[in-house]
Design a protein around this nucleic acid. Structure first.
Length: 425
RNA sequence: GGAGAGGUGUCCGAGUGGUUUAAGGAGCACGCUUGGAAAGCGUGUAUACGUUAAUAGCGUAUCGAGGGUUCGAAUCCCUCUCUCUCCGCCA
């Protein structure tokens, strides 16, 4: 949600900024509704004030057993007016809110202008792409010939876009999670937390997944809960309705969860393998910070995610999303893309965003500024550190041998009984 | 799943229709007092929105959430929600 003050006073420049995303907002109906809202609200509040005053007088007179008929008549006519005003105020506020809640965040000045992912800007590349003197396999062939990845069973159990991992691959998957958590906890000073995987509507609205992107989520109608598509939702909502002190900040959480995405509208996309699943695991970094620090923190948080790839020695690049590719709630986003030899391209493995006060305004998450003692909205950031399934794919493909074995990266061996290779049986 | 009791400010806690403008206490902040501290005394101590040059005043809303009754609701009614206790079930 954007600042209502800004929307009121600088609607035109906001509209311009939003247009960079390739979406437009209905300035006229916002303006019209806002003017209407203001007029009705002022009128309603003054009627309420009048009513309160007279009601109090009635109370005082009654206490003295005096006649209240005159005041009674007066207040009755106010009440009729007030009822009408209150009713239309509620309607207009709801209408306005529905409009405002569908407006995306304003892109930061440093975000490159563009229409689609083609216009994203590569910021840096890291690592040396491996060369192979044999015909390489993708993770599907590798996993199936090892007998350790089983898509057929998953389809049988549930449907397509699910996977069963076994033995050393399941262990490697778990090793990645352990390694990521341990790194962020000990090297980058995040606090580990464990959160619910089912969330309510309000939490999803606060972080921006609702109301616009309901079709991307798995919904449990019975209880009106959603399966989380990312730990961002439960973790960020921890600060909902809180006023934090200077000493509480910054908040740095790392959280491992499964993520559930319906992937509606991606039929035919990445149908092979584990790239795009309905269920995958992710280690998520979330920071809640003072506004003045948020852009430095975005750089820092991105580096934290990158460091996992560096330690795994997986080649990657960092891309600044252009205005047209930016997510709904984000003001700025860096995607980290890992090298997948089988696809001969970089694929997204992390997305690090600064949401500024977009989410905290919906959440009412504030801190008390020690300089002026006023409450101010916090800034929120998050990034995958990293998507585990895709990291597993990258490890398998980049570390494969001619025999179809997988070399275990050095940093993971301590989690793998110090073994150095996953061999075919 | 069944039965019962609850949700009031930073915290504890009073409050069953009208000087409640949410009592009282604790905590915290500032001041007075003191050689210093404690005690004591005094003052202050929520959030959001509107109005405003203003973090001054004034107005409005908020006593778990939403709706209703009423001139007037923390208080009465309805729905939901969360917490606690007992029983049942259960990893």
């Amino acid at each position: 949600m954007l600042d209502p003050q800004l929307i009121r006073n600088e609607l035109d420049s906001i509209a311009k900024a939003i247009e960079k995303r390739g979406t437009s907002i209905d300035i006229n109906s916002i303006k019209k509704n806002e003017d209407k809202r203001k007029a009705i609200q002022v009128k309603t509040e003054s009627l309420q004030a009048e009513r309160n005053l007279i009601s109090k007088e009635i109370g005082e007179l009654k206490a003295k057993n005096k006649n209240t008929e005159e005041l009674f008549n007066k207040v009755t006519s106010i009440k009729d007016q007030l009822d009408k005003n209150e009713e239309s105020l509620t309607i207009i506020q709801n209408e306005l809110n529905e409009l405002l809640i569908t407006i995306p965040n304003i892109p930061h000045n440093s975000v490159p202008i563009g229409k689609s992912s083609k216009d994203n800007q590569t910021i840096r590349e890291w690592g040396k792409k491996p060369t192979f003197d044999f015909n390489i396999n993708d993770h599907v062939d590798l996993g199936e010939s090892l007998g350790l990845i089983d898509f057929d069973s998953a389809t049988q159990i549930t449907s397509s876009r699910f996977v069963v991992m076994k033995g050393e691959i399941a262990r490697l998957h778990r090793a990645l999670i352990q390694f990521m958590l341990d790194t962020h906890i000990t090297k980058h000073c995040y606090e580990e937390i464990n959160v619910p995987y089912l969330v309510n509507t309000n939490s999803c609205t606060n972080t921006g997944q609702l109301p616009k992107f309901k079709e991307d989520l798995f919904y449990i109608e019975e209880q009106d809960f959603y399966l989380i598509p990312t730990a961002e939702i439960p973790v960020t909502n921890i600060v909902k309705d809180k006023i934090l002190g200077d000493e509480d900040l910054p908040i740095k959480y790392v959280c491992h969860t499964p993520c559930f995405r319906s992937e509606a509208g991606s039929y035919g996309k990445d149908t092979r393998g584990m790239i795009r699943q309905h269920q995958f695991e992710k280690v998520e970094l979330v920071q809640i910070v003072k506004p003045e620090n948020s852009y430095n923190v975005l750089e820092e948080l991105t580096l934290h995610a990158e460091s996992i790839l560096q330690k795994l020695n997986l080649p990657y690049r960092v891309v600044a999303l252009c205005t047209g590719d930016l997510g709904f709630a984000a003001a700025k986003t860096y995607d980290i893309e890992v090298w997948l030899p089988s696809q001969d391209m970089y694929r997204e493995i992390s997305s690090c965003s600064n949401f500024e006060s977009f989410q905290t305004r919906r959440m009412k998450a504030r801190w008390r500024n020690t300089v002026n003692n006023k409450t101010e909205l916090l800034h929120t950031l998050n990034g995958s550190g990293l998507a585990v399934g895709r990291t597993l794919i990258a490890v398998m493909e980049n570390y494969q041998t001619k025999n179809g074995d997988i070399i275990i990266p050095d940093v993971l061996r301590q989690y793998m009984r110090n073994e150095s290779i996953i061999k075919k049986p």
